[in-house]
Design a protein around this nucleic acid. Structure first.
Lengths: 242, 242
DNA sequence: TAAATAGTGTCTCTTAGACAATATTAT
DNA sequence: ATAATATTGTCTAAGAGACACTATTTA
């Protein structure tokens, strides 16, 4: 019985087709989220060639042969945005045979979050540029199966905010609790009670008060908070375990 | 700035080495768990060739060019075990450049659970055979980075039992609540209170009573339960969303 | 009747959610 | 003083965990 396992030299898989024994290509794509203008945004790039010319797509590219998947993701990201310090985790690997009309492409997709202040580099070109931020509520037509990927990434983000206190990853280094609540409300798509929200977030211990306030508005200034370094470390460790 | 993205024809990655511009190979591996002899077991196969000759490894193989990743996983699994109906989800994609000494191999690893009664086919050969079950508490030396993969799969299983009621996926079609509790205790590595365990599991609604009892022991017979089909459907749907 | 496992209920503590009034600033 | 947002506490309901005795079967 064990003689017809794939490890046996005599073994020939029933679906084997000698004419098409190419190896699939592997890309690494990155779904990068940020919170801008009170809305959740994704970074997309415009395609210049067939297929899906002029459609928008999740940034990504081929893995170099001597580079880890995560390094590839960080490199791609840095090339697109200049961003260096992001929260990154592997999202899912998409490999349906017909997702790219050119050839078999397997995409290892990463999920990244960046603070609103860190990703200014991309902002410059804006509409005419090749890469820009899009509000998740107002996406353009997307190339390949990228709408499905984006929906899944969005779901992962929702899940993350529901079960962890890591929403601050989408905000600048300091922020008010109202800022943070806005992130949660937009991502989760529901209104949250202010008192319960504060109690819950503060009880996790991932935030600490600064001595500063956001001044300049015609109302009481809000205290600024920052996250504790330990918070991210812990989550990264948990995620990166494999 | 966008001129040096990978989408630009002029772009040359800094790590590019023309001599080694092979495409990575892609394998699909499957970590298959079952609960046998009151212990958590994994299915492993023995390698016949270099590298890691005679070491044990997670079963897997190359993806056929026209086959989805999930189909590849199911095919590999069926070839090894004859098992057809398993719970399957994608676990993680491992792609460190040096994890296989022969060439760059990227492994999309799936996580599978099978009822103790369904995987008898492998059981026959036992020690001399090429594929056999190993208790997680007593693993042999493993090929490649497969110990790491196994630890991660084990963690995922722990997580799954902690947050869902899907432990029955490791059991035969009918089982007693004590059987199920044993699964949870072994996988989670802690003793559970019988009353609390039953209350919690039954409250999820994934189980239903049968009219049968397990007879033949010198004590009160235990009622047999089965899971509701809806339970698995739901979890599969949740997982497969992407 | 002894041995062995099956089966069952209550109390307490913690946590999550509903809910509204006061505080502070700029204009 | 008015407008606007910040900040704070209590009550209630539900869920999680600790805990021990009775029931049923075979040998």
């Amino acid at each position: 019985m064990t003689a017809d396992t794939p490890l046996d030299p005599r073994y020939v898989p029933s679906t084997y087709d000698p004419a098409s024994f190419d190896r699939p290509s592997v890309t690494v794509d990155v779904v990068l989220f940020a919170f801008r203008d009170n809305d959740l945004h994704v970074l997309l790039v415009r395609r210049k060639k067939w297929p899906y010319q002029d459609y928008w797509a999740i940034p990504g590219g081929f893995v170099n042969i001597a580079e880890s998947l995560e390094d590839a993701a960080l490199r791609e990201l840095n090339e697109e945005t200049g961003v260096d310090d992001v929260y990154l985790e592997q999202l899912y690997t998409f490999g349906e045979p017909d997702r790219d009309p050119r050839t078999r492409v397997i995409s290892v997709v990463y999920f990244a979050l960046v603070g609103a202040d860190q990703a200014r580099q991309v902002q410059g070109g804006d509409d005419a540029a090749e890469a820009r931020w899009w509000a998740m509520t107002d996406l353009p037509p997307l190339a390949f199966d990228h709408d499905r990927i984006l929906r899944y990434a969005h779901q992962r983000l929702r899940w993350k905010l529901e079960y962890t206190a890591l929403g601050f990853l989408l905000l600048p280094e300091t922020f008010t609790l109202s800022d943070l609540q806005a992130v949660y409300q937009v991502v989760l798509g529901e209104r949250l009670d202010k008192r319960n929200f504060r109690r819950k977030i503060l009880s996790t211990g991932v935030l600490e008060e600064t001595e500063e306030y956001r001044e300049g508005s015609p109302h009481r200034p809000a205290r600024l908070y920052r996250f504790t370094a330990a918070a991210i470390e812990l989550e990264q460790a948990r995620r990166r375990f494999p």
